[in-house]
Structures are given as structure tokens and as C-alpha cells.
């Protein structure tokens, strides 16, 4: 029987007038790979950031199995943001070691775990290289090693295969499968349905800040009475997607007025002959 690890209870998140997440309730069980699937601006990253304790919910609560707030128990989490967040002037191992030290892990323990996963990711020869010259794939692998080095209970991956070549994306997916086999819990955000279908045993479809469906792939097909996950996704997210919440960055009235003072609207006559 799988045990509940993380709970989101009626969680909403607003940024000014923008409601990024509205009334989301979720239970994350251990030993599972959960896919957060949705388009750009759906609210996947905001949801992951709330799970990681970076954002606090405007209403509702995010808490762990023993009732503790997630930002008090961050050692249980391993996070790989979309940007990977590596320091270019540090080597791969120094990046990993920095995070492990913050987690309070001995360097030797972190090294042992890193070496074990580095072999899976074919990264063992690159651990002492500066990440400055790394390809996107190598950066993603390093970020994964960094997130795993302290032995987290839950791994949060934000678009882990975005921008990766086919081989690197496959290696990442294989690692996620391996973690699942070893009893780990992975929350995996992606906008690729096929990938979610391949890796995840539970798919949560997020659209315009709300959860449209939550279940195993076959349950989603049943729910929407469709034959493929793509059809199911389209039927669940039929209305127009809103813009990304980052696009609605607050700008002061004075700054806007000032900007308009130096903006000319160019219009040109339409040449009918063209």
C-alpha cells in the first residue's frame, strides 16, 4: 500500500490580479512517478514551486505526511528547475557538493551517491569539469545528480527533457524509471503527452491554473471517452490558454507613462498592389 507523502489542500496562488493556480487539491503517494502535463502558462511551474516551498499558497495548504509545512522539510525534496541553476565557474561536483552541504550531508556520502548515479548517466568523467562548457544535456544530468545527492524522498523535475537531444532525454527517462523501481517518488512536469505516458504512472492535466484530470493514463481515456491521450488532452483543455503569468509582470504607472512618452505608434499605408 502506497503511503501519502505530500498533500495540497484547496491550494490557490495569485500574483496580483492573476490567479496562477485555483483550488488545487492533490495527494502525492510514495513510490510513484506523477506527470504534471499542460501547455505554457498552465501553472505547472507555479505548482512545483509551491511543492518546493519557493512560493507560499495564497489560500490552502501544502504539507508533508506528518503535517509539517514543506518549507520546513526541504531536505526531503530534490528539485531540478527548468533552468538547471548550475554555477558556471564551479565544477559539476562542486555544484553538487554545495547543495549537499546546505542539506547537511557529509561530502563522502554525497560523493558515493553521486558516483552511483553518475555511472547511470555516463557522467563520471565530467564531474570535475566546469559546467560553463556543458551542453544542455550535461547540465540537466548534473542538475539531476545534484538533486539526488542528499537522498531526497521526493524529486521535483520541471521540464527535465526540454531542449535535450533524443539520447539525453532517453537517459533522463531511464533514470526516472530506475528511481521508481528503487521506490522513489518523482513529480515530473512536461508538455509532452507521449513522454508522460511513457514515464508516469499517474498523469495530472493542468490547464489555466486548474486541474482538469488526474489519474492513470487508461483512466483519462475512460473519463474523456477517447482513444488516445492526445484526444483526451484536447477535450479536457478546449478553451483558449491564458498567457504565461510571467508575461503579466507588474510595472508601475509612472514607468508605463514614461515608456509611452518615448513610444511612437507607426502605421503605414497599405499598398493595394502588393
Amino acid at each position: 500500500m502506497n503511503e501519502n507523502l505530500l498533500h495540497l489542500t484547496d491550494v490557490s496562488k495569485s500574483f496580483g490580479e492573476v490567479n496562477a493556480i485555483e483550488h488545487v487539491s492533490l495527494d502525492i503517494k510514495d513510490r510513484s512517478v506523477i506527470g504534471l502535463v499542460g501547455g505554457n502558462g498552465a501553472g505547472k511551474t507555479t505548482l512545483l514551486r509551491m511543492m518546493a516551498g519557493i512560493y507560499k499558497p495564497t489560500t490552502g495548504r501544502v504539507y508533508l505526511k506528518d503535517g509539517q509545512n514543506v518549507d520546513q522539510m526541504r531536505s526531503l525534496l530534490g528539485v531540478v528547475p527548468e533552468s538547471t541553476g548550475l554555477y558556471s565557474k564551479l565544477t559539476a561536483w562542486e555544484n553538487i557538493r554545495f547543495h549537499s552541504r546546505i542539506h547537511g550531508i557529509e561530502d563522502s556520502v554525497a560523493w558515493s551517491r553521486t558516483i552511483r548515479f553518475a555511472e547511470l548517466l555516463d557522467m563520471q568523467d565530467s564531474l570535475h569539469r566546469y559546467t560553463e562548457g556543458f551542453s544542455r544535456g550535461m547540465k540537466q544530468k548534473t542538475a539531476l545528480l545534484r538533486a539526488l545527492a542528499h537522498g531526497p524522498s521526493i524529486l521535483l523535475l520541471d521540464e527535465p527533457t526540454a531542449g535535450l537531444d533524443v539520447t539525453s532525454a532517453r537517459i533522463v527517462r531511464k533514470l526516472v524509471q530506475r528511481l521508481k523501481e528503487e521506490g522513489g517518488t518523482v513529480i515530473y512536469s512536461t508538455h509532452h503527452l507521449a513522454e508522460a505516458e511513457q514515464v508516469c504512472d499517474r498523469i495530472i492535466i493542468v490547464h489555466n491554473g486548474t486541474i482538469r484530470a488526474d489519474g492513470k493514463p487508461e483512466e483519462l481515456l475512460q473519463l474523456t471517452n477517447t482513444h488516445s491521450l492526445e484526444e483526451a488532452y484536447v477535450s479536457l483543455t478546449s478553451e483558449v490558454a491564458r498567457p504565461r503569468q510571467e508575461d503579466s509582470i507588474k510595472t508601475s504607472k509612472f514607468a508605463l507613462l514614461w515608456r509611452r512618452l518615448f513610444t511612437r505608434r507607426h502605421t503605414y499605408e497599405v499598398n493595394e498592389d502588393e
Partner: peptide, 8 residues
């Protein structure tokens, strides 16, 4: 972002 997700 990675830094803010740490127990810090």
C-alpha cells in the same frame, strides 16, 4: 530558483 528550494 535551485538555491531557494534548499533547506536555507
Amino acid at each position: 530558483e535551485a538555491l531557494l528550494s534548499l533547506p536555507l
